[in-house]
Design a protein around this nucleic acid. Structure first.
Length: 479
RNA sequence: CGGGGUAUGGCCUAGUGGCUAAGGCGCCUGCUUUGGGAGCAGGAGAUCGUAGGUUCAAAUCCUACUACCCCGACCA
């Protein structure tokens, strides 16, 4: 992990931005607040897409596509939705060289355009459940942006489902939440907290918002994915009713859920170190880089061996052979560490003499000499253990920075720590207390979970008001 | 929208009133090199963010503007 623990907040920001820019994942774009995702960064996104698509399709979801522009009036149909999104809409007022009679907004999310179509598609319980996902870009004109973490335009997937019953929709909401948790842990090696959002933090238009949260190395939380139970709000706003099995007419029950390119930012902030990017093996664009070490005498022999090795490995691993002879091995080592290649294979005369290669891990820096005949198998073993080691390193960090606050004084003291982390506290569930905590300490409720009655012998009390506590929250400062 | 900062070749920086704007990285040419960011020699590349002002003289001082970055406000 990076050793900026004692440094200031701005240094952490700079460290993060340096990695994004120097590892060539993204760049500032000419449009303020939006970024250019460069090929190396996009490859991570493609990898995420492919894994998530599999998880969605395995649970019966299908991909579709809806328009970028949404009639402004659609947004206004759901009261909370319009209130929540209005301040951050980009509006198209002119087209074809003339003012438009009715303006369009660039989608900040697609609930409204999708539900306008669902009205046509859903008549009977036979049409349900309708399980659709879309890969798209959306625009939200935020006041403050940061590469990957909050850009005015970003890429995401948004799922939109319609169900016969409340229970089925709630189950779907939680099923997706669990897919997100599994994806983050099993593919990105990022441990997460899952739970419900408070009324103040939930999605504009949802009945309940659930989310997965991760803890960054500076002790701030980052929301990595959300899954909303929408109740019948959008069905009512767009008048989507269906004939039930009992021949009655009822509004359908809905969910929506999404994860975005923000996950790339979360991945960087969770795993990377002072040498640069560290990418978990299952999504890494480059899993193995082969660096041949040549001199004028053995050049041909070493390069022949290196190419043989490349041919052998590249069908199984995302492999790069760096045979550029204008830069030195030392330069390449540093360069590939910065770019986050999982494993480096050094192949030089000494190695070839004993029919082996030097294998170096990005996460730990540990070097092992491996016989060439075992190399392919060894790589798999190392990639697997690298994933587990990265997960456990991150998990240990989270555990070390998770504290329980029994009083407000204790809470405030924990918030004042350089790396405040998660603070678990009981409160009365009121907006007033939540707001006060935010004003006093900058910490917000990341997720709410119900209080396990077996956990405390005496009834839980709100740390601020002293009233009986109704909820146990995980609080943190956040991005 | 507030607070702070920056603006000099493709990138990073030096230059705080005075001769032809300096250096590093990168780039081009050639040679030599290659096990942790190689070396030597030569070369190309800048109207010093924009506009105005002060002065014999401005990259440097003053004013305004613009852009970007950081911290807030805001933010499924």
């Amino acid at each position: 992990m990076a050793d900026f623990i004692t440094k200031k907040e701005t240094d952490y920001s700079q460290w993060y931005l340096d990695i994004v820019l120097k590892a060539e994942l993204a760049d500032y774009s000419p449009i303020k607040g939006s970024m250019v995702i460069r090929p190396r960064g996009y490859a991570i996104w493609e990898s995420m897409q492919s894994h998530l698509d599999t998880l969605f399709k395995d649970t019966g979801h299908q991909n579709a596509y809806f328009p970028l522009l949404i009639p402004e009036a659609f947004i206004a149909k759901e009261a909370e939705h319009v209130e929540g999104f209005s301040p951050e809409l980009a509006v198209v007022t002119h087209a074809g060289g003339a003012p438009l009679e009715t303006p369009y907004v660039i989608r900040p999310t697609s609930e409204t355009i999708i539900w306008s179509m669902y009205k046509k598609w859903i008549q009977s319980y036979r049409d349900l459940p309708l399980l659709i996902n879309q890969w798209a870009n959306v625009v939200r004109w935020e006041k403050r942006t940061r590469l990957f973490l909050r850009t005015s335009e970003f890429l995401w997937q948004e799922g939109h489902t319609a169900h016969e019953s409340k229970q089925e929709a709630v189950e779907e909401t939680l099923r997706i939440l669990d897919i997100y948790r599994r994806f983050l842990e099993d593919y990105l090696a990022i441990p997460v907290q899952q739970g419900r959002k408070t009324k103040l933090e939930k999605f504009a238009g949802a009945v309940d918002t659930y989310c997965v949260e991760a803890l960054m190395q500076d002790g701030k939380a980052l929301q990595m994915g959300t899954s909303h139970f929408l109740g019948q709000n959008f069905a009512k706003a767009f008048d989507v009713r269906f004939q039930t099995r009992q021949k009655e007419l009822e509004y359908v029950w809905a969910t929506s859920w999404g994860v975005s390119t923000r996950m790339i930012g979360g991945l960087i902030m969770t795993h990377s170190d002072n040498k640069g990017l560290v990418v978990p093996p299952r999504v890494a664009p480059t899993q193995v880089v082969i660096v041949p070490i040549v001199n004028s005498e053995n050049k041909r022999e070493v390069l022949t061996e290196a190419h043989k090795l490349y041919d052998q490995l590249s069908p199984h691993y995302r492999t790069v052979l760096d045979d550029d002879d204008t830069s030195s091995p030392g330069f390449k080592f540093s360069e590939w560490e910065l770019r986050g290649s999982c494993l480096r294979i050094e192949l030089g005369p000494r190695d070839i003499a004993k029919a082996s290669a030097m294998l170096v891990r990005r996460d730990s820096g540990v070097k092992t000499s491996v016989p060439l005949i075992h190399l392919s198998k060894e790589i798999q073993t190392h990639l697997d253990s690298m994933h587990h080691d990265m997960y456990h390193k991150a998990k240990t960090f989270v555990d070390q920075h998770t504290h329980r606050a029994h009083s407000y004084d204790e809470f405030k003291q924990l918030c004042a720590q350089p790396i405040s982390g998660y603070i678990i506290a009981d409160w009365d569930g009121s907006d007033t207390v939540e707001t006060q905590i935010k004003e006093d300490t900058m910490a917000t409720v990341r997720v709410v979970n119900s209080i396990d009655p077996h956990d405390t012998k005496k009834p839980a009390r709100c740390i601020v008001s002293g009233r009986p506590a109704t909820a146990r929250g995980i609080f943190a400062k956040s991005y």
